[in-house]
Every structure is written in C-alpha cells, then in structure tokens.
C-alpha cells in the first residue's frame, strides 16, 4: 500500500529521518515503534504531506505521492491523526465529524442558495453518519458538546471517528493510546480492528504500549535514529538484539536478555 524509499528529512544538521525504507502492506495493521526521537512522528509528517522530505520517495499503491499537500492526500484516502489530539474547538463534536466529508454540494454558493432541498438531504445523510460514528465510538452523549471541552481521551476517539467519516484507504495513527485509560484503549483497539476487517482500512500505528501493539499489530517495524532497525512479528522485534540495544543501551542489554 505504502512504500517508503530511502527517505531523509533533515532539520539543519539534525537528521530526524535518515534513510528510512519500509513497506506497509495493504490490509495490514502495521505497528511502528522505537524510542523517543527515533523519527516516527517526523516520518508520519513527511508521508502525510505536512513536511517535505529532504530526499527520498513515498509511493502509495505504486503512485509517487512524495510532497503532495495534506488535502490532496486526504482525497487519495490517506488520513492521519495527531499525537496530541487536534480538534475544531469552537464547533460541536458532531460538527467536527461533519466537517470531514468533502466535495459536498453545499460547497458552492449557487447550491447553497438555490438547491436548498438537495443540500439539506445531503446534510442529513452526513449527520446520520456522524451519529452512527459517535455511537460506534460510544460517545453519542457528547454530540452537542463543544469539542474544546471534551477530555483528552475523548478527543482521541474523535480523531479516530474523523477517519470513519470517509472511505479511507490508509490511516496513520500517531500515539492513539497516549493518555488514554485501559478501557478506552480497548475500545479504540476494537474500533481499529473492526475498521480493518469490515471496511478494509490499512493502519499504521505509532504506539509505546507494547501490549496494545502486541494484540493489534502485525507486522511491527522498529525505528531508531531515523532508520528502520527491525521488522517482523511483535515477538521477533521484541527479541531482536538491536532493538533492545536501541531502547536500553548496550549496558543494560545482558541483564534484560537474562531476565527474559
């Protein structure tokens, strides 16, 4: 689905992504792990068009999408969420979801003025869909709340809900579980799995919670210092010496391995 070829992103002398190459298979839930500062989020930002790469290519289903603007990528079915949840604070939770589906006929003034009926019907359909998504995420009771007022965890759900308003092909989730309690995390995990099986979404998930990654993702890719270190099933990656070294440094390696 997504192929990243020798991607570099330098901020001055700092090489945040330093020759990363990886592949995200269609229909997979790929986990992306790595210690802080490994370049995971920067990689997301480059793939999702927020940052332009210094060099390298990103391919989506064989098509070169390197450096396309975020809104163009959205129309190609590539969506992402943020590490720190973003929302349209002055709008209600439902309105936040209703913002997503683009190219509605309300878009032109002509339609808004002269084809009220058609626009209203479409608006109703989107509204129903938003309510459906809210129900799916178990936050129906927040529909009319201003998005700025809901909790951090609920904002994470809203982020996920946003990707459900359109038919996405691939969704990049940046620490969707950060600051979210167990129960909510399970809800999010279930939602991801259902979207994956029922609607064929491909996911790429950055996450630090190894239990969450372990139960959800296959394969898992580990990054460190801007490069891909290892790739495989959770257990393969967990037991990879280079991965342990990257997380803990060489000094602690033997200890951890000894304790299993």
């Amino acid at each position: 689905m997504i192929v990243v070829e020798d991607l570099h992103k330098h901020f001055g002398g700092f090489h945040a992504v330093d020759g990363a190459s990886l592949e995200i298979g269609a229909g997979s839930i790929t986990g992306l792990i790595g210690p802080n500062g490994a370049g995971k989020t920067t990689l997301f930002n480059v793939i999702a068009g927020r940052l332009k790469p210094t060099s390298g290519r990103v391919l989506m289903a064989g098509e070169d999408i390197t450096g396309l603007a975020p809104h163009d990528l959205f129309h190609k079915g590539l969506l992402r969420t943020f590490q720190i949840a973003h929302e349209f604070g002055s709008m209600t939770v439902r309105e936040n979801l209703m913002m997503v589906p683009s190219a509605q006929s309300g878009e032109t003034l002509w339609n808004a003025w002269f084809r009220r009926g058609a626009v209203a019907a479409e608006e109703r359909a989107i509204r129903d869909k938003a309510d459906e998504v809210l129900e799916f995420l178990t936050i129906s009771h927040l529909a009319d709340e201003r998005a700025a007022n809901i909790s951090g965890g609920q904002k994470k759900l809203l982020e996920l809900g946003r990707t459900m308003m359109v038919d996405a092909k691939i969704v990049f989730l940046d620490e969707v579980g950060a600051g979210v309690n167990r129960t909510l995390l399970n809800t999010i995990g279930d939602a991801i799995r259902r979207l994956n099986t029922e609607r064929g979404y491909t996911f790429c998930v950055i996450e630090h919670d190894m239990d969450f990654i372990g139960s959800l993702c296959n394969p898992v890719i580990c990054m460190a210092e801007g490069r891909v270190l290892a790739q495989g099933t959770v257990d393969e990656v967990k037991n990879d010496e280079r991965v342990i070294e990257a997380y803990l440094g060489t000094g602690l390696k033997n200890k951890v391995v000894a304790h299993g």
């Binding site: 969506l79 709008m91 683009s102 359109v166």
Partner: peptide, 26 residues
C-alpha cells in the same frame, strides 16, 4: 454558519493543521 465554505473557514481558523487533513484546500 451554514455554508460548507464558511464552515471550512471557521475550521481553518480553529485549527489549520487539522483543516488541511480534513481535505480542506487552504
């Protein structure tokens, strides 16, 4: 308040990054 373009403008004013990711053409 009512038109799609107007809402896009409010969305853009609220959170530019998110607006871009929602397919709004800046």
């Amino acid at each position: 308040q009512k038109t799609r373009t107007g809402k896009s403008m409010r969305a853009f004013s609220d959170n530019e990054d998110l607006a871009l990711l929602s397919g709004i053409n800046p």
